[in-house]
């Protein structure tokens, strides 16, 4: 099972995975130093394949780009620097502070998974910041039994929540943190989080009476298979 995931490093470096496998492998990458190391070499090899095709682009492209960047805002570097240390520092009580962390959401996770998720994150970041700055947003903090903390920011008007972990204990290769919304005692999966710092965006949270986190086999489970390491009444 885990062995199977290791074998995806080469197709991943060649961008030969479908989106589902891509996501699965990126989840694995966060946990597997061996694959990260191998991938560095594969990416540099793929770079040579690209360089062999180098060809002068039309000059107009340069002009267009230079004018475009002068009118285009950038993500804020300071936020990334903090998150790159592997944890979101005390985000503070103000939601706006947390929002600035999350708008640069790609900062969380490893180098490889980070930039390869850039597209998804760009699509998500607007929804995420909308929740974070919503007038009706509420914030729940909970301790994770095995180490670290979990924060849930929920906005009823958006019917959505942002869940983030910080300083979560590193799990072994085959396990992930999975987040659940409890509804009349029935858990519904909101997704999985990486170790260290991680976050996810979840919709349809209306009527949830609690949020919980369990440790599950890599890839997540349809229903919790272990006792929660964190639980927060909504």
């Amino acid at each position: 099972m885990t062995h199977d995931l290791h074998t995806l490093a080469a197709p991943y470096a060649l961008d030969a995975l479908d989106p589902h496998e891509r996501a699965r492998f990126e989840g694995h990458l966060d946990q597997c130093a061996e694959c990260r190391q191998e991938l560095r070499g594969f990416h540099l090899t793929a770079l040579r394949l690209a360089e062999a095709e180098a060809d002068t682009p039309p000059p107009a492209l340069r002009a267009r780009l230079l004018s475009e960047v002068s009118a285009t805002a950038q993500e804020r570097p300071v936020v990334t620097t903090l998150a790159q240390r592997g944890r979101i520092r005390r985000a503070g009580p103000r939601l706006l502070v947390a929002a600035s962390v999350l708008v640069a959401a790609g900062a969380i996770g490893g180098y490889v998974s980070e930039h390869n998720r850039a597209d998804d994150l760009q699509a998500d970041s607007a929804r995420i910041s909308a929740v974070m700055v919503a007038g009706d947003a509420t914030m729940l903090d909970g301790k994770v039994r095995t180490g670290g903390t979990m924060r849930v920011v929920a906005s009823p008007s958006h019917d959505a929540a942002v869940v983030m972990g910080s300083d979560l204990k590193q799990l072994d290769d085959g396990h992930v943190y999975q987040v659940w919304a409890m509804h009349d005692g029935v858990p519904r999966s909101l997704g999985v989080l990486g170790s260290g710092a991680g976050m996810l965006y979840a919709q349809d949270i209306a009527g949830s009476d609690a949020f919980a986190v369990t440790v599950e086999p890599d890839g997540g489970s349809p229903a919790p298979t272990t006792d929660p390491v964190a639980a927060m009444p909504a």
């Binding site: 961008d15 560095r40 990416h43 540099l44 793929a46 770079l47 690209a50 780009l65 475009e68 960047v69 285009t72 805002a73 950038q74 993500e75 804020r76 570097p77 936020v79 990334t80 620097t81 790159q84 640069a104 790609g106 900062a107 490893g110 180098y111 490889v112 980070e114 930039h115 390869n116 850039a118 597209d119």
Partner: peptide, 29 residues
């Protein structure tokens, strides 16, 4: 290149080269 401009802050020199970062992103696209 616009994405590079916008998300350059995510680049961490400790984890790989800039060339590799940009080309990985470009090939994916």
């Amino acid at each position: 290149f616009l994405q590079v401009w916008q998300t350059a802050a995510r680049f961490d020199p400790a984890r790989g080269t800039a060339k590799s970062w940009v080309l990985t992103l470009a090939h994916r696209r």
